[in-house]
Simulated scan of single mutants.
Amino acid sequence: MSDLNHTNTDRNADPLTNEPGAHPIGTGIGAAGGAVTGAAAGSLGGPVGAAMGAVVGAVIGGLAGKGAAEAVNPTAEDAHWRDTFVREPYYSDAYTYDDYAPAYRAGYQSVIDGRGDWNEARTNLQQRWDVDHRQSSRLNWMDAEPAAKAAWERADRIWKQTKQE
């Protein structure tokens, strides 16, 4: 398919190079986390070591965040869950896809954001469900959690699989 058939949002074009597949949020989150970790590790070498550690950590973290963001495609995840949510064991016909979608989005976004452990992601998601993630969903956290976990596990598998390739 040619680029003429895709909008800029479909291509996720890099704002500088116009190349498809830019993931500035994933890269930025990874860079920030890497900078903190690198600075802490480099602090053993004094202020210069901390500064160098922050720079190296930011680069490595940025690449990791970009990798997760490239591996886990939100458009593909939304399409997957829209097609399969009614076959999930937690599904209730009292709810629509629009009720489950914020939980799925929060789950796979946690992997993109670098939460490499479900327990860490779960704690964060539970704390933020009513404030940030729930939107217009009618699900309370107890009903949303299985959907968020399913999306997190799927995204985590995709991310780990691409790291091995």
Results as ranks from 00 to 15, higher is better:
Y90P: 04
A103R: 01
L125P: 03
G38F: 04
A35F: 02
G30Q: 13
Y91C: 03
D132C: 04
E19F: 00
A148S: 15
F85A: 05
N140T: 03
E70A: 12
A58K: 04
D98F: 04
V111I: 09
G38S: 07
R115D: 14
D132E: 12
H6F: 15
R105E: 15
R82T: 06
I25Y: 13
A106P: 00
D83Q: 09
V48M: 06
A151F: 11
R105Y: 07
N73D: 15
G107F: 09
G30R: 12
A148H: 09
H133Y: 14
T123A: 04
W141K: 03
D3V: 04
T123R: 09
T84F: 00
A51D: 06
A13P: 00
R105L: 07
A54E: 00
G45D: 09
D132G: 01
Y95N: 08
A54H: 03
N8M: 10
A121C: 04
Y97G: 03
P74K: 12
L4Y: 11
I60S: 02
R128V: 06
R87A: 05
D78V: 11
H23L: 04
P15C: 08
K163H: 13
G30F: 14
S43M: 08
T75K: 14
R105F: 12
K163F: 13
I112D: 02
N18Q: 08
G45A: 07
G28A: 14
R87K: 04
S110T: 08
W141E: 04
M52C: 12
K163Q: 15
V72I: 12
Y95L: 02
Q164E: 07
T84A: 03
H133E: 10
P20H: 02
F85L: 02
T162S: 13
D83M: 05
H80M: 06
A121I: 04
T96C: 03
N119E: 14
A71R: 08
N73S: 14
W118V: 01
K149A: 07
D83F: 02
A151W: 08
T96S: 14
A103D: 09
D83V: 00
Y97R: 03
Q164C: 01
G62V: 06
E19A: 06
T27I: 01
V131I: 10
Y108D: 11
A144M: 00
K163M: 11
D83N: 11
T123I: 05
Q127M: 07
Y95F: 14
T27Q: 10
M52L: 14
A69E: 13
E77R: 14
D132T: 12
D93Q: 10
A94M: 01
N124Q: 10
D93H: 11
T7D: 11
G26V: 01
A71V: 01
A51N: 05
R87T: 08
A40C: 07
A144W: 00
T17K: 03
D143W: 01
